[in-house]
């Protein structure tokens, strides 16, 4: 294969771009800038760890079925793990988001990193919401009855029917986790590629500015 042909190949272009923007040293670094030394940095990884517990407990629940946890003690325990890990996930994610806001973490051409993070937050709310709809208990009956009015009011209910259990459980265990997982992977790769945003005043001296 000639060099010219190689240059034009999509595959080789993607490989070269990946190698340039995200070499393995950036993907798995063993050092971080000296400013990465605050408890706030723990909330990103804590969010990911909570997501791991959510996925693991969710897979068990998916294999056993939506009603399993009503009559099995083990099922109820796994459901409880799913429930509490979701609570942790949102607490950590919200603190992570606030932290990144006050750090103006979109600086240094990191706008897409912020956007993917915010989209992940919105997608998480949708995923959790569909989870509450498929609990097959009184709470899910009531939530679906109440929520239908909101979605119907703007026409979304014509396609996203919260009282349709079949549609909601498929969205909850298949489509939305896939979307959320994909956005999360992209977000993490962008963080690794761009690096952790430096302090707001880190370059004041170089730029001859004073704060």
């Amino acid at each position: 294969m000639s060099t010219t042909q190689e240059k034009e190949m999509w595959t080789s272009k993607l490989r070269k771009s990946w190698q340039k923007n995200l070499p393995v040293e950036k993907l798995l670094p063993d050092t971080q800038p000296a400013y990465v030394a605050s408890w706030i940095y723990l909330f990103g990884v804590a969010t990911l760890a909570s997501l791991g517990v959510i996925i693991a407990s969710g897979i068990v629940l998916a294999f056993e079925g939506a009603s399993w946890y009503h009559y099995s003690n083990v099922g109820h325990f796994i459901n409880s793990m799913h429930f509490w890990s979701v609570q942790f996930f949102f607490i950590f994610m919200v603190v992570h988001l606030w932290g990144k806001f006050w750090m103006a973490a979109w600086r240094g051409r990191r706008l897409l990193t912020w956007i993917t993070g915010a989209v992940a937050f919105v997608a998480s709310i949708a995923t959790a919401f569909t989870g509450y709809l498929v609990q097959t208990n009184f709470d899910s009956q009531w939530i679906s009855y109440e929520a239908k009015d909101g979605f119907n009011s703007v026409g979304i209910g014509s396609r996203f029917n919260v009282t349709n259990f079949g549609q909601m459980i498929l969205l909850h265990v298949a489509f939305l986790p896939l979307v959320l997982g994909l956005i999360t992977v992209i977000h993490v790769l962008m963080v690794r590629a761009k690096g952790v945003v430096p302090p707001i005043d880190a370059f004041n001296k170089e730029l001859g500015e004073r704060k």
């Binding site: 063993d30 050092t31 990884v45 990191r110 430096p198 880190a202 730029l207």
Partner: peptide
Amino acid sequence: RAELESASWSGRTRPYDLIKEG
């Protein structure tokens, strides 16, 4: 400023074990 903030960090660093932290 945007250029400096987007460039790879060239200042002081410290050891950081991402996998262990995770």
